[in-house]
Design a protein around this nucleic acid. Structure first.
Length: 587
RNA sequence: GCCGGGGUAGUUCAGUGGCAGAACGCGUUCUUGGUAAGAACGAGGCCAUGGGUUCAAUUCCCAUCCCCGGCUCCA
């Protein structure tokens, strides 16, 4: 037993996960001999195995899981061999495994191999495999794995290819880790913003408008609290706010390039025989504002901010609560800059973005640099220049980043800020996009020192990205227990009986006099104190201020801090000071 | 859009080929309370929508809509 444990520790977790994928391959084909295995890699927390020609549902997983265990208990040895390419292809053709044949062909073509690594366990499995598995199935921790779900996935990740059936599993080195991960998933469900949005009465969705958010009063209070911080920081950083129409004529979108690159995602409407589009982006409107008069180099950089509502017809299957919607508000700004101002502007935006996330207390975002996509406008020279500028800035600031090849906007490369949701899915929030094309298309100019017309660089940037998505991330980050400065309702005043209702209202007025912006509610309901306290805790209200006979006599209140219990009676002024400090310091 | 799963009271969910269920919430009354659920009574339902099978469908079958988990796409 001790010996076995030592051997298990020698196996790295990827080997264990990849081995389970092999066994999934064997087990599935025992029940479904015509299934055609494709790839089966180790992934974060587990593995998956893809199959063509397989139609199963989640209910089939237990029997497959049982089969995997029984195969593993046969103490099979994974044996590595090198087979000539021809032999591999012939074998898989005979076995009717077209995806394996294709993988073999691609390996030979891309890596110029003549012999391919395969793995076999006696005569049970022959799988193409570059290695990375345990030596013997007895080393696999059978109590630390679990098949979790089936899902569709396109062959080679391309939607033009056939859809395969993917079996996902979790696998860890020890049962304890699996249990911990399953407990984490349970916790994550409680943090789910869709669930909290309903429980805390923040927003809703309706079949009458799929993908569009309905904000409730408390959701709006939360949003306003967030946006007032945003507003304050941007005003101080020299941004000017503008507002442009939601409907703009079709030919504007033809000029901007959206018609060619983005038409499928746009909503259109016809008025007086003229076609208008609902804006999917704010840029063209802002550009029209810039162009109302000739601009001097002395005015630049101009930072026109517009928190505009954009509509994008996203495919139905991609919608996801607040994280992916069809209408959202972006904290968009278009910075019109002279070329030699670009670097400093981008640096300032990066700093502002990180500062904003830090004040709120979000985890550090991970940063990606997205490069030229397949559909693009502008010259290759422009793209090279823009990409290298962004790289230089990130390197100079010593910021870690990942290159996201081909994921740029159609008019320029971008730096993106990503944060994970409660289930660990990553979402893009802020973005900084360099654009050398739009100023050509819209003939945007400024008059330089030498009296000549020149093209400004346009920097498209958001800190929040989509306000909807950002709030989804925010709700999950705080699990609905917002810090006092953000909480839709900051204080409930709870009279112990309705005899003290008028004193409770006096206290409310006193607090509002000191602090007019305080979100304070008197709980008038005819319920027991215990009931109202429970309700306040469930609603995650930061402070519940209890008032009764004692408080009325002394002119005090007894606040209770969320999750911390009764703080004891204190003067109203003293309580107001605590609130003021907490709200000001935003913690 | 594609693959898989789901939709029953305001919410979370049971359930059944033959009168539709619970808890919480909501309303009324009683109660006037000291830090996480006081009590009684009551009102809520085209069982998502439209077809089909059947003597009979909320239940079985098909289609549509919406939601969830993935894939692709995206902020």
């Amino acid at each position: 037993m001790v010996k076995l444990k030592n051997r298990m520790q020698k196996n790295n977790i990827e080997n264990i996960r990849h081995s389970f994928a092999h066994l999934t391959n064997i087990a599935v084909r025992k029940f479904y001999p015509k299934a055609q295995p494709a790839i089966g890699p180790a992934i974060e927390n587990g593995f998956y195995q893809d199959f063509g020609n397989l139609n199963i549902s989640k209910e089939d997983l237990p029997k497959i899981e049982k089969e995997i265990r029984s195969i593993a208990k046969q103490n099979l040895t994974f044996k590595k061999e090198l087979w000539p390419f021809r032999k591999v292809v012939d074998f898989y053709k005979k076995e009717k495994q077209p995806y394996k044949v294709q993988i073999a062909k691609d390996l030979v073509k891309e890596k110029k191999l003549t012999k391919l690594g395969i793995v076999r366990t006696g005569d049970i499995l022959v799988d193409l495999c570059r290695g990375g598995h345990v030596k013997n199935t007895r080393e696999l921790p059978l109590d630390a794995f679990k098949l979790t779900h089936v899902a569709g996935a396109y062959w080679r990740g391309d939607e033009k290819n056939p859809m395969l059936t993917r079996v996902y599993g979790l696998a860890f080195a020890e049962k304890k880790e699996l249990d911990e991960y399953l407990a984490f998933l349970e916790e994550a469900k409680k943090r789910d913003h869709k669930r909290l949005g309903q429980e805390l009465d923040l927003f809703s969705f309706h079949p009458e408008a799929p993908g569009f958010v309905f904000w409730h009063p408390k959701g709006m209070l939360l949003r306003q609290a967030l946006m007032s911080l945003h507003h304050e920081l941007h005003r101080k950083a020299g941004y000017q706010e503008v507002s442009t129409p939601i409907l703009l004529s079709e030919d504007l979108w033809k000029r901007s390039g959206h018609w060619d690159n983005y038409k499928d995602n746009m909503y259109f409407t016809k008025i007086d025989n003229r076609v208008f589009a609902i804006k999917p982006m704010n840029c063209p409107g802002t550009i029209l504002v810039y162009k109302v008069r000739p601009r001097s180099y002395k005015e630049l950089p101009i930072r026109f901010a517009e928190a505009g509502e954009v509509h994008r017809h996203e495919p139905s299957g991609t919608l996801n609560g607040l994280m992916r919607v069809r209408a959202f508000r972006q904290d968009d700004t278009h910075i019109f800059a002279q070329p030699d101002q670009v670097e400093q502007e981008v640096i300032d935006v990066i700093r502002l973005t990180l500062q904003f996330y830090r004040i709120i207390g979000l985890k550090e975002p991970h940063i990606e640099l997205s490069t030229k996509p397949e559909k693009y406008i502008g010259s290759l020279a422009m793209w090279r220049k823009a990409e290298s500028t962004l790289k230089k800035i990130l390197n100079d600031l010593k910021i870690d980043y990942k290159i996201n090849k081909g994921d740029g906007a159609f008019y320029g490369p971008k730096i993106d800020f990503h944060v994970k949701d409660s289930l660990g899915r990553s979402w893009q929030l802020g973005t900084i996009q360099l654009d050398f094309s739009m100023s050509e298309r819209f003939d945007v100019t400024y008059i330089d020192k030498d009296g000549r017309q020149k093209r400004p660089v346009i920097i498209h940037r958001t800190v929040i990205g989509s306000i909807q998505r950002f709030m989804g991330v925010l709700i999950e980050h705080f699990a609905g227990a917002f810090p006092t400065w953000l909480a839709p309702e900051q204080v409930w005043i709870v009279p112990i009986s309705d005899k003290f209702l008028s004193y409770a209202k006096d206290v409310q007025q006193r607090l509002l006099k000191d602090y007019p912006a305080l979100r304070v509610v008197v709980k008038e309901e005819n319920e027991t104190l215990g009931k109202k306290i429970r309700e306040g805790e469930v609603q995650k209200i930061p402070y519940l201020a209890v008032v009764g006979e004692k408080e009325q006599a002394q002119g005090t209140l007894s606040p209770r801090k969320r999750g911390k219990g009764n703080l004891g009676a204190m003067k109203i002024d003293a309580f107001a000071k605590i609130l003021e400090k907490e709200i000001k310091e935003k913690n």
